[in-house]
Design a protein around this nucleic acid. Sequence first.
DNA 1: TCAACTCTTTCATTTATACGAATAGCTTTT
DNA 2: AAAAGCTATTCGTATAAATGAAAGAGTTGA
Lengths: 249, 249
Amino acid sequence: MRTEHKPTLRTLAILELVSAGSEPYTLTSISRALGISPSTLFPIVHTLCEQRYLSYDEKNQAYSLGLKLFEIGSRIQSSHVYDRITEIMGQIVDTCDETCHFGVLDRGDVLYLAKVDSTNPIRMFSTIGKRLPAYGTAIGKALLKNYDLDELKSLYPEGLKPLTAHTITSFEELHQQLNDSDLFTYEVEESNKSVRCIALPIYRNKAIAAALSVAIPIYRYDEGKKSCIEGALKEASIQLEQIIPYFVF
Amino acid sequence: MRTEHKPTLRTLAILELVSAGSEPYTLTSISRALGISPSTLFPIVHTLCEQRYLSYDEKNQAYSLGLKLFEIGSRIQSSHVYDRITEIMGQIVDTCDETCHFGVLDRGDVLYLAKVDSTNPIRMFSTIGKRLPAYGTAIGKALLKNYDLDELKSLYPEGLKPLTAHTITSFEELHQQLNDSDLFTYEVEESNKSVRCIALPIYRNKAIAAALSVAIPIYRYDEGKKSCIEGALKEASIQLEQIIPYFVF
DNA sequence: TCAACTCTTTCATTTATACGAATAGCTTTT
DNA sequence: AAAAGCTATTCGTATAAATGAAAGAGTTGA
């Protein structure tokens, strides 16, 4: 399993570069950014345009992200399983009226796949596709729950960088907290100021496949809210674990 | 502009194949589907896995869609412009309480980029990323408005296939209807039974860049509803045309 | 008006990939 | 229990892509 394919790497590097940047790129700016000569890039970029993975503005000579990736990416969201997940998350929001997230672990980061927010339904999906270091979030801690100390250290070779003043930065403290937690994991202003989170893992075949979390503005938090959320999360996790065998993720 | 790059085409063909199919693929099944030898595919597919564009289930020896494409695809939805679009669409829904769509023309199809539905906010995005032939939808007609007869014919070389019993299947009739419409375009059960649609184009530099539509169940439709929707659509289009210069699409 | 600059595009040679044949591991069939 | 299916791999050679240099094409500035 030590095979790398340079043409594919080049193609993907272009897509990532263009999708990450807010400014459109020219062929030469892509060349500069990737350290690949324009003559190499030329046919690749043209093919990407032809296949609508990139779009080219002839007037400004600028490449930007095409619609194909949007289309392919949204196929995950169009699946029946995805509908079921947001439906189940909706029940939590109906009960507790707080924002609910669903995410998976991706190389040490939480990747947010779904979000339901009761107070502003129009902007529902604004954080979908975003990522945060797992150690700094409740949902991430749920995903890291079964990691031992060495695994944690190898996941973050550069250490635990703080996201806020409250972020856990010691591997030992993180591991201790993960060990101490039984069902739920918690976060107190560790990724966002003035926000608490409660999360729990979703299992598939006795392994953690995903996690669910609820975020609460700190001023709205009390013991009643906590037990309401924990009840709703537990109930939702039971339902999710019934459909999760069919997950793509 | 006649340059094609086979390695890139192969890479993209794999991504499209795996993302389109509901079943997971093996290396050999990808090989069969694309007519490319497994030994060629081998390093490409491994690289795609390494970069998380594909994921590999070692137990079942099955490749499926990785999370990277979801991540990149959702970057369009995370943009500030996208937020603004859904916000403006939300105003239409607040006024008329009917489902609102936003889409662009993509090779003869409407590609739906955004949707706001007032009655079932949880399943908001279920049709995003989907596509329909433009000639069979109000939103598509808005996008085709400035096409002349020859352009329409070359866009659909295989003719206008009916989606329902009411779909327009004659190029002449379609072109006539596009010519007759002044601001709004209409659809009466041409793509979905029991659904009417009203749409209008969104302009950027005097060219049609996108379109907005509202769908109404036929039993709920009357002249009052029609004028309410047309007023809301017109108002929204003015706001959209102010932000549309910054569109990626 | 000319020159300097940016970007895209082409071309011949070096360099890397693509292919079929063959190997090896695994599961199901006979 | 042997064989006939699958599957993922590896290897040597034919073939195709990558590269830097150089040429167009268009734009900005003096």
